[in-house]
Amino acid sequence: MSTPYYVSPEQIRQDKEDFVRRGIQQTKEVIVLAYRDGLLMVAENPRKTTFKISEIYDRIALASAGRIAEYEALRVAGIREAEIKGFRYYREDVTAKWLTNLYSQHMGAVAQAWDAKPLEIELLVCEVGSEDGLHGNQIYHIAFDGIYWEEEKYAVIGGRAAAIRDILEQEYADNLEMQAAVQLATRCFQTIEAAAEEAYDITPQTIEVACLEHGAERRKFRRLSTQEIAEIARIDDAT
C-alpha cells in the first residue's frame, strides 16, 4: 500500500490562486465608475451577444472578467434568486449586498472543494443609489475564492486592472457627465492597449457600455447601442 502524500493547505491555496491568476491575466478588463447619474460600466468586448455586463434586478447589475460560461451560470442563477426573493417579499428587499453574499459563498465553496477547479472569474456586483442621494452607490468586488470587498467610486477587474486603476487614480473626478465618463473609460483602454504587444483596437464595435441610471423608472439598467457608443465616446472608427 502506498503512503498517501501530504500537501499543505497553504500550498493548495497557492496553487489554486496561481491557476486562477494565470487565467484572469489573459482576460480583458471591465471598468465600473460612478458618474453624475449613477454607475457606468465599460468593457472591452468585441462580441455582439455574449456580454460581460448584464442586468440582474431593478437597481443591480453584474460585470465579470474571466470565463464566459462560468459567468453566465452565475448571472442566470443571480437573476433567478433575485426574482424569487422579490416575488416572495418586496422588490426593494433585493440588494447588491445580499447577492454578493450568495455569489461569495458559492465561489468560496467551489474554491475550497478538493475535487473541483476554482472558478476563473472575478465579479463586480453593482447597485445604483437613489436619486435623492440618501442611498449611495454600492460596488462589490468578488475574487475567485469568494473573498469580497467594497469599492468606492470606481472598480476594475481583469488582467491589467492595476494599470487602469493607476490611470483612474489620476484622472477620475466626481460627478462626471456620462459622456466624460465613457470617454475616460475608453481612454483607459486605449492607453493600456497602446502599451500592449498586440494592440487591440478600441472602436464602438469592440467595447460594451451599460449604465445604471438612478433617475430611470423601476429598471435602472440600460445597455448602449453601438450607435450610441459611437456618438457619445467619439472614438474614431478604425475601419
Binding site: E83, L102, Y103, H106, A109
Partner: peptide
C-alpha cells in the same frame, strides 16, 4: 446557497 441546477430554463 446559490443553486446552479435550474440553469436551462427561462420559465420562472
Amino acid at each position: 446557497m446559490l443553486e446552479l441546477g435550474d440553469y436551462g430554463t427561462s420559465d420562472f
